[in-house]
Each structure stands twice: as C-alpha cells, then as structure tokens.
Design a protein around this nucleic acid. Structure first.
Lengths: 153, 153
DNA sequence: CATATTTAAATAGCATGCTATGTATTGCAT
DNA sequence: ATGCAATACATAGCATGCTATTTAAATATG
C-alpha cells in the first residue's frame, strides 16, 4: 500500500524531464527558441521539405501537437510551409535562413545542458544511463507497432 | 555540429516522460485521476493538512502550477481547503473520503506502469537506472540550494 | 465510375508546466 | 507603532502535450 516515489522510475523521469526542460529553456530562449521548436528543428536541420506526417513519426508526438508547434514556428519565422506538389492535402515544411543560422548555437546550448545535468555522473554512468533509456524507448516503439498489427486501436 | 538525439540524455528523458505519462494517464483516468493529481495525492496520502507551500517544496513544481492543480482537485472532489488557523494568507489542504479510497487502486496502477515500462530491463538494470536518475535529481536540488545561497535569483 | 474508406491537416477543449504579476497578510526593523 | 520587506496564494498569459472531431483530398472497392 505504500509507494516510494523517490524510487519510482516514472516519478523520477517526470522530475528529470522538467529539470532538463527548464535548463534547455533557459539557454535557448535567448535564441528565440522554445524546447519543442528545437526538437523539431533537429529533424529539419537534417533535411527539410518534410510533411507533418513525417515529422510526427520521427519525433513521436501526436499529429495535433505537431500541427500547433509548426504554427508557432511559422509565426516565429523559423519555417514556411509550401503546398505538396503531388498531394493537395499535405504541406511541405521548409526552414528559413534564420532557422539555419540557429543550428550551431542551439546545438551547443543543448550539449551544455546535457553536460550540466549529467555532471554528477561518471562517464561510464552517463553511458549506462543513455543505454538503458534508449532500450526502454525502443522497446516501447516495438511494442506499439506490434499492438497496432494486432489491431488494438 | 551534428547532434545525435538518440544519444542525448535530455531528448531521451523527454521522450520517456511522455511515454510514462501516457501510460499512467491510461490507467488512472478510469479512476477519475490525472497524473499531476496523482502526484499530489502521493504526498497527501502520507498525511494531509498541508499548505500549498509545503506541497510545492515537496513536489518541486512552481507555486502557480500547484495552485492550478489544487483548484482542479477541489473541483473534482479530491480535496477541500480550509483556512489556516494561524495564518490568514494560507489554506490547509485536506483529502476527501473519495481521495482516500483511491489510494490503493491508484498506487497499484502506478506500480503496473513502472513494471511495464521497465520490463525490457533486467532487475539489475532497473535498479541502476533508478539509482542514476535519483543521483541526478538530488544533485540538482543541492546545486539549486547553493545557487540560492549565493544569491543567483 | 461511384461510393466508401483512409489519410493529411486543422481545430476545439483540456491538463500541466512555466514566468510574471497582483493582493493580502505577516513579520521585522526602526 | 509604523512602515517596508517577505510570504502565501491567486491570476493572466503562454507553450506543450493529449484526445476527439472536422474537413478535404486521395485511394480502394464494389
């Protein structure tokens, strides 16, 4: 009947995510970026001209969430959206020059946040942590795909 | 200039936190609970009659966040707030009977979410993960306290 | 070919989280 | 005692995330 939140993976993950988000916000806000925008840019910097559907599947957020994030990014001059040449339902997302210029400083900011947050761990521990988190995330992706196959809705 | 998001602790933590929140939501929504409400109840089940300030410091969220969560919990019949006998600015938060009844099923739901999410890891790996996350969180708490001492605002 | 289903996006409505600010009350220091 | 600073809480406004629904276009099926 008792529950030790300080040993609960879910509780700790939530807490850590808030700490990471707070730190990232502090370092990219001066660049005019918000965390979800940065996450989206990470994909677009690898190559733009993607549809919303493609961004959704790569970033694993809901379609509605991405639609809103893209609207804010367009408002903030980070992207523009052009009609898809072969599918009139879809729009392609392109980076603006401003967004391209932010790549180096924003990535540097994110790196420093990771470094600061991981600082209490040894290099080995840092690698173990990332390995374990990666394992959990990819197991979920697999589980979800198989659930879909089985028609769980 | 490149950045591997799949090896970024911040990115992975954000992703995992969304997966945990989604899973928890799915299992406590039938009880009429939302994740932040559950987190707050975890404290109150240990003993109610706390002020908002006390909840804020134990859960490490901002005061405004807690104020809004408590308003929703009052609306949903989980808590009631009574005037503090010695400080007319403050209010004491008490659980309703309904909230007390939810303790066992809600904790059981949270346990099963943790178990499911951690399932891809061995028992040892699970302990290591929790140890490392705990270490990061408590290091942050210390760092923040010392920052405050030094007057960083 | 016509209709039904699926797909891409947008929108509405809500919960959490944040920062910034306002309001009342308390407490300290003169 | 007064008057300023600190404290407790509420509120406004915004970003992210979600589910559910709507609209339009593309596909598939009869």
């Amino acid at each position: 009947m008792d529950f030790d939140k300080l040993r609960s993976a879910g509780y700790l993950t939530n807490h850590l995510a808030r700490l990471f988000a707070h730190a990232l916000h502090g370092r990219i806000a001066p660049l005019g970026l918000a965390p979800a925008q940065f996450m989206t840019l990470l994909e677009l910097w690898e190559g733009d001209g993607l549809t919303q559907v493609e961004l959704v599947s790569r970033l694993d957020v809901e379609q509605a969430t991405m639609a809103n994030t893209l609207t804010r990014m367009e408002r903030d001059g980070l992207i523009r959206r052009a009609p898809h040449p072969e599918d009139r339902r879809a729009r392609l997302v392109f980076l603006t020059d401003r967004a391209r210029e932010l790549r180096a400083p924003a990535i540097e900011a994110a790196r420093s946040v990771n470094a600061d947050m991981l600082e209490p761990l040894t290099a080995d521990e840092q690698n173990v942590l990332v390995d374990l988190m990666e394992k959990m995330v990819s197991a979920r992706r697999t589980a979800r795909r198989q659930g879909e196959m089985a028609g769980e809705e």
